[in-house]
Design a protein around this nucleic acid. Structure first.
Lengths: 346, 346
DNA sequence: TTGTAAGCGTTATCAC
DNA sequence: GTGATAACGCTTACAA
């Protein structure tokens, strides 16, 4: 006893399968009486047309692809929530791939999306391809897709694609400025992966904010992390072991900030009494727990939602000109930026 | 210029499409020379067969479905990571649905999975259907699927399905026991949603551990939360406002624990000096930040991995008898369980 | 208003 | 070894 098909429904209802199809799709003419008859049979058997067959026939799938680099990162988990909500609000289906930040899985995922004929793709590249050799492969797959692509969070070379990004530079700039305004003069940064443009943009925002106020940044005060917790932790430990160190830090992302704070707290230092601090992105639960950690953050779920919107609009109208949305970050100062050093007071 | 098909490849290689298909699938005989020829054409054009057509033809998709209730919950984000890794390690594809803990979306997701012909499904029910009317609909959809289903984390009625669960009862029991051993006598619980069996099991573990030591539990010391942060926060605030309250609490899940801690810290109480504490599941970053919060936790990513394993095994051998994996929790005591009250010392 | 029939891009069963 | 050809379950002209 195999799966029930449109043919079965047609037989049961005593009509042709074209008619059933018309009822299913609300297309073409069909009399009220036959429509009712067919609908009853469909309901009685909880029949649902095979997406495989339907898509093949229509030469267009009802699937949206999503490729993200770190499924377990709270940032991407929220993005996923946003994307998923809109996608199935439109009776589309979501194909999910996690690339663990590796180029191989990234390219492989793109192949998967191609095989599956996704109708559109939301894509956060695992790495910054720059002009890397592999960029060719990515460009080719993306081209073959023949489906709209929205790049999310991390830009992809020079391709003319829709995108949703953050104002990394200005958020970092504003955060740094806040630290300076609070009275800090020697400030460090827990930088993220500088191979990624978002990492470089945040570093640049920091550097320029410092330069704008005539403040020097020592090389050793730039902790070159990788957007993860453990690297930042290690680097921070080393930094704290040095004879002297900054009186405040800007952490360029959530995970990196956790590593930094761990090392700081382990050392017995307090924030902000011993160390000023602002992070990029809100440190989820910490601020719920009575910490007063300042941060610059963006509407993450909203970024996901916006990405799908852009995608659906492009699917709707393939000639729509490409858009780049830059989600603004908002600086929230809760006190952790304060300076207690005997410096030029505010 | 449309998408390149097996037909095109056949023409280009000067062979029939059956031959190309054989090369593609490594099935049947095909001479070394033609194989080489065909493979070259395939490579030159980075051809990949259409999953839609292939699945339709084989009457079996290469898609695994996954339905989870809270995409943004770190617990499920990790599960997803585990599942996703194994799934695409097997060249399968992952169809993702988030149900936001609502029954409607849950049932709707099941329909989606059916339409998409998923080869197998990993399913965390949004609600405890119990004997609810809707259980019929779920049972029916699951039956129609004709694909193996692995239930994850939350059991589903009496259906004979593979499952991966946690030892909720004994983890709660052990955690409570630890609190008692540390010298606490009046202990409360931040319970989760008692409509969910995992919520009830954890509460029961707590209650029995108390009973086993002859300790009473006052009704008002059972905070009936909903596994979320805000409800627990509110309930804890109310509780702390009362004339007297427990000297220690067991929090039945991660989100609920955050709400509890927030209220406790806001009140200016310290852990463990003023309040003993153990949670179910590790409070991610907190313990990385110098907190010493005791917890009972499980290998979450491992649960996801195990679920796919079970699923693939069943897909491989549909007659395999159903298995229920119970992932053991490990109790880790870091000091937050200690009692400072002038009670019967350990 | 409805049914017939020709695809959609594969796989699989045949003959050759 | 290989190539026609009939499915697979649907949609969509085109007839009727």
């Amino acid at each position: 006893m195999s799966r029930i098909t449109i043919q079965d429904i047609a037989l049961l209802a005593g009509v042709g399968k074209a008619t059933v199809s018309r009822v299913l799709n609300g297309s073409g003419y069909v009399s009220e009486t036959t429509r009712a008859k067919v609908e009853k049979v469909i309901r009685d058997h909880t029949y649902a047309p095979s997406a495989m067959a339907r898509n093949l026939s229509k030469r267009a799938s009802d699937t949206i692809g999503m490729i993200i680099p770190e499924a377990a990162n709270p940032f991407f988990a929220e993005i996923l929530k946003g994307v998923s909500g809109v996608v199935d609000g439109h009776n589309l289906t979501l194909l999910f791939c996690n690339t663990d930040n590796t180029m191989e899985k990234d390219v492989k995922s793109l192949h998967t999306m191609y095989r599956q004929h996704v109708r559109g793709l939301i894509y956060t590249p695992a790495v910054d391809y720059g002009s890397a050799e592999k960029l060719g492969a990515v460009r080719e797959m993306l081209g073959k897709l023949r489906a709209p692509v929205v790049v999310l969070d991390r830009p992809l070379g020079d391709m003319d694609l829709d995108g949703v990004f953050s104002d990394n530079f200005s958020a970092a700039y504003a955060a740094t400025q806040a630290l300076i305004n609070a009275g800090h003069a020697r400030i460090g940064i827990v930088a993220g992966d500088l191979e990624l443009s978002i990492g470089r943009e945040r570093l640049n925002g920091f550097l320029e904010a410092m330069a704008a106020r005539g403040l020097d940044v020592r090389t050793e005060d730039i902790l070159k992390g990788r957007f993860d917790t453990s690297t930042s932790y290690r680097l921070t430990q080393q930094m704290l072991a040095a004879k002297s160190c900054p009186t405040a830090f800007f952490a360029a992302n959530n995970l990196g900030a956790y590593g930094f704070l761990k090392a700081v707290f382990e050392k017995g230092l307090r924030i902000p009494e011993d160390m000023g601090f602002i992070s990029f992105d809100r440190l989820g639960n910490l601020n719920d727990l009575g910490f007063r950690l300042s941060y610059a953050d963006r509407d993450v779920i909203g970024m996901g939602v916006e990405a799908v919107r852009l995608l659906l609009a492009k699917i709707d109208d393939p000639d729509k000109k490409t858009e780049h949305m830059i989600c603004p970050s908002k600086l929230t100062l809760l006190g952790s930026e304060r300076a207690y050093v005997p410096a030029n007071s505010a």
